[in-house]
Design a protein around this nucleic acid. Structure first.
Length: 592
RNA sequence: GCGGGUAUCGCAUAAUGGUAGUGCAUGAGCUUCCCAAGCUUAUGGCGAGGGUUCGAUUCCCUCUACCCGCUCCA
């Protein structure tokens, strides 16, 4: 992961452009806003739609092995129990008042020492804080090393304004009390913990007008769980076989602690997720005698029968990269982060983040995780409904095994699970898994490419944003703004202009051209201001082409140029003289 | 959630305890106008709520939103 140079000023310009030209507005602005949510204006709505459509086309319409789904946002809360979302965040949490670090209320180890209090702190930089600080001087700890620790945490919290930690002066130090086995201090930092309170990042709501506790459900925190919950229905209704995928685009909601960086981290956002179900490696090996192994430079373009989870994972990283390249995010603004063993969730085998360079840093656009059979198995267990796929070739292959080979297979599985320790399956479940496997049944594994649509829209805007200083003949220079959007995602494809608006013939002809083109693409007709200004307006919103109707179009320079128009390119400003009748095809070719 | 900062027409900015100004943008008009041209003209603003005051955009308090740094990010 490269540390991109942060450019807060650039971000401000982009935010300003987004508002000025109708891409993105603050939600509920006339009432003072609403934290962490944003609205898309006319051009933003088109941009987002183009991105959404491009994803949908690439992921399902252009493929034989991925099907679409459009599930509801509200679901049975049991889904969030099964997925682990409810439990993970239903805990009571306490925060350290010194560092704001959070701990589970029931996970605080008792400590002994002397509780100390400071009335505030100040620094030679002029920074001052009147916040009362309480922390535990642990038994045996030297008072100076204690003070040093407190200063370091204060400096960290205060940011740049407080300056160096060692220069901070602690004010009004006093001993409060000697404590024995207290659970009111953070086990690592020693800071006083505040009151315990529930911490849930899911948005709670009530399904049904009585709004009692029995009606509680949640706005989905991710779209993926609906795909798992409908896995069997899609499988049974679509005559499709593993490997195959189910994809979905939709809103998701999270009570983010800190929404930030414009639309990048919002509380309401749109996700584009694919769950691609694959055979377990054991099934590949049973049928094909081997599992293909990834090696640098191996061909990932066409899926093969002997691919296990690793190849499929690599395949999707490759596919997703090609998608981004195709809508204007070139390889030089993208980056990859392969999560380390420590970062991975316990059920995940691998996870790659595809990152993009934003003005505020290099941040995640998409995560592609190999999640094993964790999700479907969890739903199978919680719902009591089988989530298995019956694999005919597997059944045939295993039918040929003798008893010795079967028991060796079982022993090997048991050993694998034992090696995983607490994370491994109990012996009984492993034996059951093997039994089902021998009959050709298994819970498919899954590769999950999960992307944020709002993040993508922001990435597209940020990377397209371009300022140029232009100097005219008189030496007067000004800064012009161009959005170099890929024609495929640009909200407006072509601007149509009569050279002058006070000549009815020009206006009529331009309106004709507009009527012709709007049938196949988003157009913008503009007859006000000078022609240069109209070009500039379109440049600023990323319109790739401009069409100008002039006096030659009307035949003033003879029949040669009659019914031709000037087509002007946004990037480079090159002009072409094109027959009106050829325009739709000429433009369509360049917008594909 | 903590600390720091910001809030003035759509955008960018100025000044002020006493009728809030400018540039750009926007609307109307003139112009044979191909890269933000010129001229005329119009619309439009002190984030919300309290307090101090004869009078508050300005001073004080509270709230809200946004930005930066921590923190969080299934």
């Amino acid at each position: 992961m490269s540390a991109a140079t942060k450019e807060p000023l650039l971000m401000e310009k982009i935010v300003s452009l987004c508002k000025r030209r109708g891409f993105i507005f603050q939600s509920s602005e006339i009432y003072g806003g609403c934290g962490g949510v944003w609205d898309y204006g006319p051009l933003g709505a088109e941009l987002k739609r183009n991105l959404r459509d491009a994803w949908w086309r690439t992921m399902t319409r252009d493929r034989d092995d991925v099907l679409g789904l459009d599930a509801s946002i509200l679901m049975n809360p049991a889904i969030w129990k099964a997925s682990g979302h409810v439990d993970t965040f239903a805990d009571l949490m306490r925060e350290c008042t010194l560092t704001n670090k959070r701990v589970r209320a029931d996970h605080v180890d008792p400590q002994s020492g002397t509780a100390m209090r400071f009335s505030g702190a100040e620094s030679p930089t002029g920074w001052k804080s009147a916040r009362v600080i309480e922390a535990l001087l642990k038994n045996g700890e030297h008072i100076e090393s204690f003070r040093k620790r407190v200063r370091a945490f204060i400096a960290q919290n205060a940011g740049e304004s407080a300056g160096a930690a060692e220069l901070i002066v602690l004010l009004g130090e006093e001993k409060i009390e000697v404590v024995e086995d207290s659970v009111d201090f953070h086990p690592e930092t020693g800071g006083r913990l505040n009151e315990a309170r529930p911490f849930n990042l899911m948005l709670r709501t009530f399904l049904g007008p009585t709004a009692t506790e029995a009606d509680v459900t949640y706005l989905r925190p991710e779209t993926a769980q609906a795909i798992f919950a409908q896995f069997k229905n899609v499988l049974d209704s679509s005559r499709i076989k593993v490997p195959f995928g189910i994809c979905q685009i939709g809103k998701a909601f999270r009570n983010e602690v800190t929404p930030k960086n414009f639309t990048f981290r919002s509380r309401e956002f749109e996700q584009m997720e694919l769950e691609f179900f694959i055979k377990p490696d054991e099934a590949i090996e049973a049928v094909h005698g081997r599992v293909a192994v990834y090696a640098e430079g191996v061909d990932l373009s066409v899926p093969q029968d002997d691919w296990g989870w690793e190849m499929w994972h690599r395949y999707w990283v490759d596919q997703r990269t090609k998608f981004y390249n195709g809508i204007g995010l070139s390889t030089d603004v993208l980056d990859y982060h392969w999560q380390t063993k420590e970062e991975l969730a316990h059920y995940a085998r691998a996870c790659v983040d595809i990152l993009c360079q934003f003005p505020f840093g290099t941040e995640e656009l998409e995560g592609i995780a190999a999640r094993g059979d964790f999700d479907l198995s969890a739903h199978q267990k919680h719902s009591g409904k089988p989530q298995e796929f019956f694999d005919e070739p597997l059944k045939m292959a295993v039918a040929a095994w003798d008893d010795a080979r079967r028991s060796a297979f079982v022993e090997k599985k048991l050993a694998e699970q034992r090696d995983k320790g607490a994370q491994g399956l109990p012996e009984e479940e492993t034996r059951h898994w093997c039994e089902r496997f021998f009959k050709g049944n298994y819970v498919p594994h899954v590769i999950e490419p999960s992307a944020g649509l709002d993040r993508l829209a922001l990435a597209i805007l940020c990377t397209a944003f371009c300022e140029e200083v232009k100097t005219d003949d008189k030496g007067k220079s000004e800064t012009i703004t161009v959005l170099r959007l890929h024609p495929r995602v640009a909200p407006i494809k072509v601007g149509i202009f009569p050279l002058l608006k006070n000549k009815p013939e020009l206006v009529a002809k331009a309106r004709e051209v507009h009527a012709l083109l709007r049938k196949s693409m988003v157009c913008f007709y503009d007859e006000t201001a000078s022609i240069g200004r109209r070009y500039a307006r379109q440049d600023e919103v990323g319109t790739p082409f401009g069409v100008t109707v002039d006096f030659e179009t009307l035949g003033e320079q003879g029949p040669e140029l009659q019914d031709t128009v000037t087509v002007r390119e946004r990037d480079g400003g090159a002009q072409h003289r094109i027959k009106i009748s050829d325009l739709p095809a000429w433009l369509a070719q360049r917008l594909a």
